[in-house]
Amino acid sequence: MKKDEKVIVGISVGDLNGIGPEIIIKAYEDNRSLELSTPVIFASGKTMQFFKNYFKSKINFFSIDSPEKVVHGKVNVVNVWKESVKIDFGKESKKIGEYAIRSLEAATNALKKGSIDVLVTAPINKHNIQSEKFNFPGHTDYLAKALNGKSLMFMVAGDLRVGLLTDHVPLKDAAKHITEKLVREKITTVTNSLKQDFGIGKPRVAVLAINPHAGDNGVIGKEDDLVLRPALEKIRNEGSLVYGPYSADSFFGSNNYKSFDAVIASYHDQGLIPFKTIAFGGGVNYTAGLNKVRTSPDHGTAYEIAGKGIADENSFVQAIYTAIKIFKKREEYNYYSKNPLKKASK
């Protein structure tokens, strides 16, 4: 991509009864946002027109039949469906879940073909999307299969980056999933992402313990001493700057996280609670480990405020900007990887 070319941002519309369409509209109401990238929303012109009228927005949509017909300087909408959709704000609906998946699948196909450069996903309801054809706990797992990658949920807010060893699994099963192989895979994914997606040459990574106080020498669980600590020591001896396991209860409150380029939590809430406490409303969920770039806001469908016009679009806007930055940083990394002498003389 040349420096003057705009990044094409594909957007899956998410749950239409949630706040997704509202934050998409708010993100692109200001035409200045079109100077940096070109949006392509996967829904339908008719559906997005409904939301424009409902929220009394001045945004103008440009309907196209395929992402290959994108027009720069416009807020493009690919007509994934043509029929009218009944919107019932704040209500969970199986039918609405089907539209969310149709949008996601169309956007993912466009991403695979290169018709769009990056994918930003609006929030879905993990319950109403389930079917015989779609049986994934969320975007991350679906995209890992669709793009043949080892995905990792990577929460990003400025210099704060939090990854997970286990994500959408019941807490009672989290420790069972943590093996040396998994630890190695996740650390490799995080380290590679820090290098190619964020431009950090020698990343420092902290890993949080599985048990309280890292098990207290086996008094509060043996998993840290038997699995996590030996795995980290092996990886560290191979040259990676990986440290831990650290007791999770004081790690963020003491600002210890600021000494590292990324933190890997052992399970979902261990990492997501402090992240969202520090960065809520401005954080981004980035799917690391794939050959394509996908981001999303750090919140869900927010049914309780859907249709009220009060949803904050900042996290979605940050998801757009983060996707663009990572896409450009990855292009730069790939270029200099192939031309190391040019990097040396830069």
Rank of each mutant, 00 (worst) to 15 (best):
D261I: 07
D225Q: 12
G289A: 00
Y286I: 07
S250Y: 14
K234W: 10
F252G: 04
V263L: 08
Y267D: 00
T295D: 01
R294Q: 07
E223T: 02
E223A: 07
D249P: 10
P274N: 10
A279Q: 00
T287I: 14
V227G: 01
A265D: 05
T287C: 09
G244Q: 08
T295G: 03
Y303L: 10
F280D: 04
V242N: 06
A265L: 01
L232S: 12
A265I: 06
G221Q: 13
S247C: 13
D298M: 08
T287R: 10
K292S: 05
L228H: 09
A288S: 11
T277S: 13
I273K: 01
N255I: 06
E233W: 03
V263S: 04
N256E: 15
S250P: 08
I278Q: 08
S250V: 14
A248M: 15
D249A: 08
A231C: 02
F252W: 12
G271V: 02
G309L: 07
G221P: 12
R229E: 06
N255W: 12
G300S: 15
Y286L: 09
K276M: 01
K222A: 05
T301E: 00
E238C: 11
A306F: 13
F280V: 03
L290C: 00
S247T: 15
D261N: 14
I310H: 06
F251L: 00
R294K: 08
P297Q: 10
I264M: 05
G309I: 12
Y303V: 12
V227R: 09
G239T: 12
Y246G: 14
V242C: 06
V242E: 10
K308A: 15
I273Q: 04
P245L: 07
R229K: 15
Y303F: 15
T287Y: 12
A262Y: 02
E238S: 14
A265Q: 04
G307M: 14
E304T: 11
G307W: 10
S240Q: 13
G289W: 05
A248D: 14
